[in-house]
C-alpha cells in the first residue's frame, strides 16, 4: 500500500503538484494520466525521492519514506523511464545486475536472477547476456530496462512513460508483457502516461491529473460513465466512449447463460472469454452474425453474447 498525503511540490511561485492525496493498493496497477506539464512525472518521482516534496508525505507499507535514505529506498523500488537509461558501457547482464550488486548479493544469486529475468523477457541468456545496449532494438532495450528495474524483486515498480518510444505493435506487446509480469510477481505498479488508451488498457485504477491536481481517481469504467470534471470527459473522449467502455469488459463477464445455437447443434461462431466486448462486436459486425458462443480457455462454453446484449453494455448505468 502506497499512501500519498497532501503531497505538494512548488518551484518558486509555481505549484507543480498541488495537494495530492491518494492511496494505491498493493499488487495493483495504477496509472496516472495527464497532459504534459500536468505534474504526473513529478508526482511519480516524489514516490522514490528523486524529487523532495515541498509539503505532504508518502508512506509505503505504513512507513514514511522521509525516514529512509534516498539510495536505500530506491534500491527497493523499481524505476523505468522513457529513454530506459541503460548504461551504455555495461552489458545487458551487468545492467540487469545493477541493483542486486548495490545490495551486495553474492555472484551466483545475481547470475541466477539475471538468467531468470532474461528468460521471462524472452531474451535468450546465451545470446543477449553479453550484448551491449547499442546492439539491441528499441523493444529489447525496453525489456532490459524493465528487467533491470525488477532485478532485486522490488514490491513497487514506478514507470514513467515506459512505452513512449515504441512503435504501436511493439508497444501493444510490451503492455501485454507488463500485465503478465505484474500478475506473475504481484508487483505494485504505478505508471505515468499521457496516452488514455494505455491508461485504460493497463490501469485497474486511473488518476487523471491536470495542472498539478488529481481531478478524478477511480476505475476506468467510472471515469467513462461518471466523469467528475469536464477535463476528465475531454481526456477520455466523448466521441467513442461507448466503444471504450466495451473494450473494458471481457466477453466471459458479459456472456449470458445458454447456447446461441439450437440445442444439439454445433456451437457456430465462437470467441474467447478473454476477448473484450469491443472485439466481439467488431467480430459480429464483420461476420454479419447476431450472436456468438463464448469459450473459456479450457474449451468449455461460458455462454452466449448477442449484438443486443453487447449494445446494452455500451451505455452508462
Amino acid at each position: 500500500m502506497i499512501e500519498i498525503e497532501s503531497l505538494t511540490k512548488q518551484y518558486g511561485p509555481t505549484t507543480v503538484v498541488d495537494d495530492v492525496s491518494m492511496s494505491i493498493a498493493s499488487g495493483s496497477i495504477t496509472v496516472i494520466v495527464g497532459t504534459s506539464g500536468s505534474g504526473k512525472s513529478t508526482l511519480l518521482r516524489m514516490i522514490n525521492k528523486l524529487i523532495e516534496p515541498t509539503r505532504g508525505r508518502v508512506r509505503i507499507e505504513g512507513r514514511d519514506i522521509a525516514l529512509t535514505p534516498a539510495p536505500l529506498l530506491r534500491r527497493k523500488i523499481g524505476y523505468v523511464i522513457q529513454g530506459y537509461g541503460l548504461f551504455p558501457h555495461r552489458t545487458v547482464a551487468e545492467n540487469i545486475a545493477t541493483v542486486p550488486k548495490l545490495l551486495g548479493w553474492e555472484g551466483a544469486r545475481i547470475r541466477a536472477r539475471v538468467d531468470e529475468l532474461l528468460k521471462v523477457f524472452q531474451l535468450d541468456p546465451c545470446e543477449y547476456a553479453g550484448k551491449f545496449p547499442y546492439q539491441l532494438s528499441g523493444g529489447q532495450q525496453q525489456r532490459v530496462g524493465v528487467a533491470r528495474a525488477l532485478a532485486a524483486e522490488p514490491a513497487v515498480l514506478l514507470m514513467d512513460e515506459p512505452f513512449g518510444a515504441l512503435d504501436p505493435i511493439i508497444r501493444c506487446k510490451a503492455q501485454d508483457d507488463l500485465l503478465e509480469i505484474q500478475r506473475r510477481f504481484g508487483t505494485t505498479v504505478v505508471l505515468v502516461t499521457h496516452d488514455m488508451d494505455e491508461a485504460f488498457r493497463l490501469g485497474e485504477r486511473v488518476a487523471v491529473m491536470n495542472q498539478g491536481r488529481v481531478l478524478q481517481y477511480d476505475r476506468p469504467t467510472v471515469l467513462l460513465t461518471r466523469p467528475m470534471d469536464p477535463f476528465v470527459s475531454r481526456l477520455t473522449g466523448t466521441a467513442d466512449r461507448s466503444l471504450r467502455l466495451l473494450s473494458l469488459i471481457k466477453a466471459g463477464e458479459a456472456a449470458e447463460p445458454g447456447s446461441a445455437a439450437e440445442p444439439g447443434a454445433a456451437l457456430g461462431p465462437t470467441v474467447s472469454a478473454d476477448a473484450s466486448l469491443r472485439e466481439v462486436l467488431c467480430d459480429l459486425l464483420w461476420r454479419g452474425a447476431a450472436s456468438v458462443s463464448v469459450l473459456r480457455p479450457d474449451g468449455t462454453a461460458a455462454g452466449t453474447l448477442t449484438v443486443g446484449g453487447i449494445l446494452a453494455r455500451g451505455k452508462p448505468g
Binding site: L50, P71, R75, Y79, I81, Y84, G85, T98, V99, L158
Partner: peptide, 13 residues
C-alpha cells in the same frame, strides 16, 4: 546522457 544519470539515481546509486 540525462536518462542514464536519472536511471543511476533511480536504481539507488
Amino acid at each position: 546522457p540525462q536518462s542514464v544519470l536519472e536511471a543511476a539515481d533511480g536504481m539507488g546509486m
